[in-house]
Design a protein around this nucleic acid. Structure first.
Length: 398
DNA sequence: AAGCCCTTCAACCGCCTGAGA
DNA sequence: ATCTCAGGCGGTTGAAGGGCT
């Protein structure tokens, strides 16, 4: 219990690392791996506590770290994942290859949080600050349901992050047990964990259960009594991270929950440890059990809007970051808002200009009339879910 | 040039969790 | 069952640097 006493030792150096110390640490890890962090400093000839060494290695010296300015896409990823996960920086970092949790946390606190605040968006809830305008009508209920989805996905992301950590642990254990000294590459770039074949929006699976199955390809037009969802080409998640920084192509995969569970276990973890299989299997079961009573809410949520969700409209919610549209928000044409998407609002560099030029109408998106707020949120969460669906394939981790 | 303020980010602190004795 | 310890995480701090007056 309690703190590790290693840092309490007198005579241990604190503060900024010198190049000499860095070199010592690098040389040692290159040669021996880090093994026990606690024992490392004395072995490496460093007057530092193990924690300090670990931090220095993880946040600075590791060769697979990307440093420097965050790209627009990375910013978007952080904002979206933060909306889902909150301040779970390590979980967020698993979806941002080569970025450390510390770096992401710093970037959030120094850049993104301020930007959102400046725009009148609460950086904690990711909602416009005067959210009190929403009443207990269908819209707020819909928003609440979207929050449900976010929570589900949040739980899933956390579980995946845990799997990543476990996998790293296993890899490092395996590496440490080898007779040959591990290369820094092996130490810091673990084998990818078992692929998770179904990167689908789990929250929608029970709904699919209700709608029936048999979606195999082509243009899919799924209809419920009051809503319509259109999907293009492949139902299976496909993420278009265009080379030019173009963002996500929205896809939602509909897979029957029982079979997807089966696939997950049989295909995704066929070569992994039984514990991992069990872990994920249990998680999936728990997840889908929890879904069983919420699918009705899901349907209600969807019934609350008559908007057609097309792959194109979803896609447009996350693209054209640099293309700023000057919409007239008074014309009741929600499509404009839908197409722009909440995330784009967050990321748009010309926010101030918008607020000024759209005086009155521009306030809608910020203050949120119920309808527009819901539309914005829908795209916001869709954008997040698209990201979630796609990120692992883009990530070195997955 | 000097002083002040603000921003950034590396590093530390303290707590939590899980493994092992 | 309890305790100890290592590793990990998130919050916070403070030195350094840049901008402004």
């Amino acid at each position: 219990m309690g703190r590790s006493p290693c840092c309490d030792k007198v005579g241990l150096k604190k503060g900024p690392w010198t190049p000499e110390e860095d070199q010592k640490l690098l040389d040692y890890i290159k040669e021996h791996g880090h093994g026990s962090w606690r024992a490392l400093p004395s072995k490496a000839g460093l007057q530092r506590c193990g924690k300090s060494c670990r931090l220095r290695w993880i946040n600075y010296l590791r060769p697979d770290i990307k440093r420097g300015k965050f790209s627009l896409q990375e910013e978007q990823t952080i904002i979206q994942l933060h909306a889902l996960l909150g301040n779970r920086w390590s979980a967020i970092a698993t979806h941002l290859p080569k970025r450390t949790d510390n770096e992401i946390k710093n970037y959030w606190n120094t850049h993104l949080k301020k930007r959102l605040t400046k725009m009148g968006i609460d950086p904690v809830t990711h909602k416009p600050k005067n959210d009190a305008l929403l009443t207990a009508d269908g819209h707020s209920k819909s928003a609440a349901n979207l929050s449900h989805i976010a929570q589900w996905e949040s739980a899933r992301l956390e579980a995946e992050a845990r799997l990543v950590r476990e996998s790293r642990l296993r890899t490092s254990t395996t590496t440490a047990s080898t007779t040959n000294p591990p290369s820094p590459h092996l130490l810091t770039k673990p084998e990818p964990p078992p692929a998770i074949p179904s990167r689908s929006l789990d929250a929608l699976k029970p709904w699919n259960h209700g709608l029936g199955r048999g979606i195999t390809g082509g243009d899919h037009h799924l209809e419920s009594p009051t809503s319509t969802l259109t999907f293009s080409e492949n139902v299976r998640t496909v993420m278009g991270t265009g080379s030019g920084g173009e963002n996500s192509i929205a896809m939602i995969e509909f897979v029957g929950s029982s079979s997807s569970c089966h696939e997950w276990k049989e295909e995704g973890f066929g070569n992994s440890s039984s514990q991992l299989q069990e872990d994920h299997h249990q998680y999936k079961e728990g997840f889908e059990n929890s879904m069983s009573f919420t699918s009705h809410e899901m349907t209600l949520s969807i019934e609350a809007t008559t908007t057609t969700w097309t792959s194109e409209s979803l896609r447009s919610s996350t693209r054209d970051h640099h293309h700023h549209h000057h919409h007239n928000h008074n014309n009741n044409n929600n499509n404009d808002i839908v197409e722009e998407g909440f995330t784009n609002l967050l990321l748009n560099n010309n926010v101030d200009e918008r607020n000024h030029s759209d005086a009155g109408g521009g306030e809608e998106s910020e203050n949120g009339s119920g309808s527009d707020y819901y539309e914005d949120n829908k795209n916001y969460w869709n954008s997040i879910l698209n990201l979630v669906n796609s990120s692992p394939s883009d990530s070195s981790i997955f």
